[in-house]
Each structure stands twice: as C-alpha cells, then as structure tokens.
Design a protein around this nucleic acid. Structure first.
Lengths: 190, 190
DNA sequence: CAGCAACGCTAGCGGTGCTAGGGTTTCGGT
DNA sequence: ACCGAAACCCTAGCACCGCTAGCGTTGCTG
C-alpha cells in the first residue's frame, strides 16, 4: 500500500509541476512559447509523459485556466467587499477585472479567449468561475432594474471582456482606458 | 508597354485570387484550415508565389480583414439609415453588428481578434473601418450625455465585441443573446 | 541572336502537436 | 528467491506548419 500511495503522490506532484511550468512559461513569454517540448524539458521528463496526464496541450491550458478562475474570483471578492457604496462596488469590481486581465494576460487568454473545451454555459462550470460571476452579479444587482439580473451581468461582463481584449490587441488606445471604464461603470450603476 | 501592363494586370488578378481563396476557405472551414499549401493549391501556383504578393500569412489575413471592414460598414450604414428613431438606431446597429459577426465568423476573427499588424488606434486606419466606427458613434451620440463621444462609442463597441466573442466561444448561451443585446442597447440609449 | 532579368518551381529548414514501439524497472504470486 | 507480468518512460518518427534558398526556364531587350 505504501509504494502505491507514494507513486500516486509523485504522479500528482508531477501533474502540478506540468501546470506550474505551463503557467510560468505562458506568463513569461506568452502561450506561443509554451510548446510540449519546452514543457517536457522544464519538468525534466520526455514529451509523451505529458500525454499520460493530459489529453493534449488544450487540456493543459484548461488546467491553467482553472487556477486563473480562483485568482480572479479572489480579486473580485476583495474589490467588492472593500467598496464603500453600491456605485463604488461596480467601479471597483470593474477595475479589478481589467487589472487582472492586464497583469496576467496569458492567464486571461487561457480562461476567456482560448481553450474552448471547458464547460461554461452548461452544467459543471468550475466553481471559482461561478464565484467570480456571482461577484459581478451582486455588484450590478442594484442597477439591474426591470432587466433579468443574469442578462445584465453577462452583458456587463461582455463589456469588460471587450474592453480588455480590444485594448490588448491594440484596437483601443491604452491611454483612454480609464475613460472607457468610467463610461461602462456609469451605464451599469443606478 | 502592352506586355508590361498585361503582366501587371495578371499579377493583380492573382493577388485578388489569393485573397478570395483565403476568404472562402476561412469562411468554409475556419482560419486553421487556411494553410499556405492549401492556398497555393487553390490558386494553382506553388507556395512561394504567395510570398511575392504578401509578406506572410498574417498579411493575407489582413487583406481579407480589410474587405470585411467594407462589408461591415455597409451593413451598419444600412441599419442606421432605416431606423425610425434614435432609440431604434442603436438597436438596429447593434443587431447588424452581431449578425455580421455571427454570419461571417472567420471574417470577424480576421478583423477583430487575429491579425494584429493592422493599424487601428493610430493614424492610417482603414477608411472602411473608420466608416463603421462613425456609424456606431452617430447611433450612440444622442445617449452620450456628458461623456466623451469617442469613449462612449468605444465602450459600446467593446460591449458588442464582448457579446460576440464570448458567445462564439461557448462562454455565453446563444439562446439568451437577444436579451443581452437588449440590455446593452438599453444602457446606450436615451 | 545573345544576354539578361524576371519569374515560379522543387526541395528543404526548423519548428509544431502527437503517437507507436520497445526497454527497463518494479511489483505480485508461487 | 525467483519468474512472469504489468506499469512506466524514453527514443524515434509521423504528418503537418510557415517560410526560404537556389535553380531552371521563360520571355523580353538591345
């Protein structure tokens, strides 16, 4: 029994090492730099070992994304908790969201622009993702009015996502980001 | 002179054939299916010919994107022109935008999610892109209030872009699209 | 008609994600 | 204690990618 458990533990550790290596490499040089060969070299095993843990590169990215959901959710919870009033809550949550995307671009990409094989609008949504979404929902709830809260939240989220992706790809001037964010917050407060 | 002009004409035709082939292939099977080899086979020339017309695959995608800007601008102009009132103009323009993205996903990707080497937030923006942006601006102008019109337009655009990309990547339920669109339109009208 | 320049081809480079097959090590039963 | 079996991981390679060097041919020019 002891050797069995040891091997399982080592295997789990190696899996974490793969995810950590992918995450670090992606944060440092972007996802294009994350190749199965470099990943294998990083964990000091051969390429095929990766495939005994994950179905493919997409699955590795998905695993990294799941970690990202936890980070984002934590940031959003903190932002909303420290807000003085409902209006400020929307602003702080929005700022926290875009800051996260700006500071962890590779993580954000894995979560929201790449890696499609994660469950989103279906059952089995990662709990941390649901946590983050709930924070957005609570922030905009006072401003929902007659509209369905879920629809308002999703639309608010889309606005944030659009701002982030268009700015990051050079389609929007970074200098005007605060102004745009203020507009969005304005439209989803009161 | 005659042979010279003939060759230039043939060259121009071949360039158009490359763009058309890339566009058709992308619309039919997505950009992943557009490889330089398939493209070369499609125009019945060898691979290196492509590189005498374009710097690389990205440049070909950029050329396709430019054509897309014209289509989108036309759709937006038509939508706004036929609207009965300002409120309806925002709704129609928004619907036209998302419909375009939904019906021409590959085109939309080339324009707004891939191909970064196009000028956007700088000088030299493709005129058709500016035309489309201007239509969005005119639509939301009545609802800008004290906010800077450009910032409002960019934010509205971001909302549309976010809705489209999150839905297309499976992050938002397609069934609720109209509801979300209505929310966005609501927040950028009146 | 000779020389030259433009042109488009074949072949190949270095890279990608992924997999088949075989050795080696470790385990379990006699 | 040993032997068969199973688990494990590595080497080598497949098919593909974007892109380019170098050559042969074609067709124009003086």
């Amino acid at each position: 029994m002891s050797t069995q458990t040891r091997r399982e533990r080592e295997r789990a550790e190696r899996e974490r090492a793969i995810i950590a290596a992918a995450r670090d490499l992606a944060l440092a040089e972007g996802w294009d730099a994350v190749t199965t060969r470099r990943l294998a070299a990083e964990i000091e095993y051969s390429q095929p070992v990766l495939y005994s843990h994950f179905k493919g590169k997409d699955a590795i990215m998905a695993a990294v994304a799941v970690e990202g959901f936890a980070e984002l959710a934590t940031a959003l919870v903190a932002a909303r908790a420290s807000a003085a009033n409902p209006r400020q809550a929307v602003a702080d949550v929005a700022a926290a969201y875009t800051t996260f995307a700006e500071q962890r671009p590779a993580l954000y990409d894995a979560m929201f622009t790449l890696a499609v094989d994660l469950p989103f609008a279906t059952q089995g949504v990662p709990t941390d993702l649901a946590r983050g979404f709930a924070e957005l929902a609570e922030a905009v709830r006072p401003a929902a009015g007659d509209d369905d809260l879920e629809a308002v939240t999703e639309t608010f989220w889309s606005g944030l996502h659009g701002l982030v992706t268009l700015m990051r790809s050079g389609r929007l001037r970074r200098a005007d980001h605060d102004r745009r964010l203020a507009v969005l917050v304005n439209r989803f407060s009161r």
